[in-house]
Amino acid sequence: MERIPGSGPVILAGNHVTFIDSLFLALLVKRQVFFIGKDEYVTGKGLKGRLMAWFFGASGMIPVDRDGGHGGVAALMTGRRVLDEGNIFAIYPEGTRSPDGRLYRGRTGVARLALMTGAPVVPFAMVGTDKVQPSGKGLPRIAPVTVRFGEQLDFSRYEGMDRDRYVLRAVTDEVMSTG
């Protein structure tokens, strides 16, 4: 936990295995953690829809419409706004939940955010959340969960290079290999 700065913008970048990963992260980190989620989580009707909207909003989720070709851009701009306000933004570089628990190649969104904002990246690895909420199961179970935070990564050496695809790939690969 001491690897997460007490103030200022920071990107938390980690693996994503189950639906509840973001909830565990929000409960562990002392500062408010913001992350994006499907807008369908907060657009439901009736009491259940209102409860879900309240719960996800309170846990730091910012709804983003990921349909169409602009979902990734909307997610990055949301992350940039959160970071520009000096907050913590959590991102899963793989872009979606891992279907089998293995770590896959990261997408370059984490690198774009780090280079656009100058925010440091703290990689993390979550282990055990798949036992708490196995795929296809509704209710969570009690099981041990471990979250490991890596050393803070500073990519200021690449300032102004946020459009260079080779730099974006190198930064992303470094984040993915240190979580």
Rank of each mutant, 00 (worst) to 15 (best):
G136D: 12
H70C: 06
D130R: 14
G68N: 03
M61E: 10
A75R: 00
P99D: 05
T96F: 02
A119H: 04
A119M: 08
G109N: 07
A114Y: 11
M77R: 13
V121Y: 07
R81C: 00
L139Y: 07
A143K: 08
D67T: 15
L113D: 07
R80C: 00
G118K: 00
M126V: 14
P93F: 12
D65L: 04
Y104V: 11
T108E: 10
R112A: 10
R105C: 12
R102Y: 10
G69W: 03
P134N: 10
T117E: 09
P63W: 07
N87H: 14
G101D: 02
R112P: 00
Q133Y: 04
R80I: 01
M77Q: 14
R105V: 15
G138Q: 12
V127C: 07
D84C: 03
G71P: 08
V121P: 02
P123I: 11
F124T: 11
D67L: 11
P120T: 04
A125N: 11
Y92W: 06
P123L: 12
E85M: 13
R80G: 03
P93L: 09
R80E: 07
E94R: 04
V73D: 11
G79Q: 02
Q133N: 10
P140A: 14
A119F: 00
M116E: 10
G79N: 03
G71K: 01
G118N: 02
M77A: 03
A119E: 06
N87D: 14
V132K: 08
S135M: 14
Q133P: 03
A143E: 10
V73I: 12
T117P: 09
F89Q: 03
D67E: 12
T108Y: 01
G128V: 12
A90Q: 02
T117M: 10
